[in-house]
């Protein structure tokens, strides 16, 4: 199995996703970006991401719907939510829907990086468990 964490960044701020992606790639992650919820979902069809970093406030399909959809289609994929201060309620709602965690913008890079790593670790753990059960 490949060690590289596959991360999908979904945010309407393309400048933000581009730079963040660049930095994460440098730290050894495989990163793809999408500028809206719909694009993110279609990207997931071809790119089996371990972790999705999802902004909750986007034009078009909003973050929570995207989260809901992801959890429906790819239950093992971990989602970390990015929120503004004012949308705390949305973040909590997201947690209820099965998000791994939430981060508040602007987020410290290290924190984000560790959170993504944690999320990926949990995903792999889950996968391992399912694999083990299947074998056993």
């Amino acid at each position: 199995m490949s060690d590289s964490i596959r991360l999908l960044l979904v945010d309407d701020e393309t400048d933000f996703t581009a730079t963040l992606g660049r930095r994460l790639v440098r730290r050894g992650l495989t990163v793809e970006t999408a500028d809206c919820g719909e694009a993110g979902l279609s990207k997931l069809e071809t790119f089996p991401a371990d972790v999705v970093l999802l902004d909750v406030r986007m034009p078009g399909m909003d973050g929570l719907s995207v989260l809901h959809r992801i959890k429906e289609l790819y239950p093992l994929t971990e989602v970390v939510m990015l929120t503004g201060h004012a949308s705390m309620e949305v973040a909590i709602r997201g947690m209820e829907l099965g998000a791994f965690d939430y981060l508040m913008k602007p987020v410290a890079f290290e924190e984000l990086f560790y959170k993504v790593e944690d999320a990926a670790a949990r995903k792999r753990l889950q996968e391992g468990r399912i694999e083990g059960r299947r074998r056993g």
């Binding site: 930095r23 440098r26 503004g84 201060h85 004012a86 913008k105 602007p106």
Partner: peptide, 25 residues
């Protein structure tokens, strides 16, 4: 309004923070 404004301000700030980080890298 503040809710909208906070988000609006957070976006450029987030970008700046990331760009600064990238420059450091």
């Amino acid at each position: 309004l503040a809710a909208g404004i906070a988000h609006e301000i957070n976006n450029p700030v987030a970008i700046m923070v990331e760009e600064a980080g990238w420059v450091q890298d």
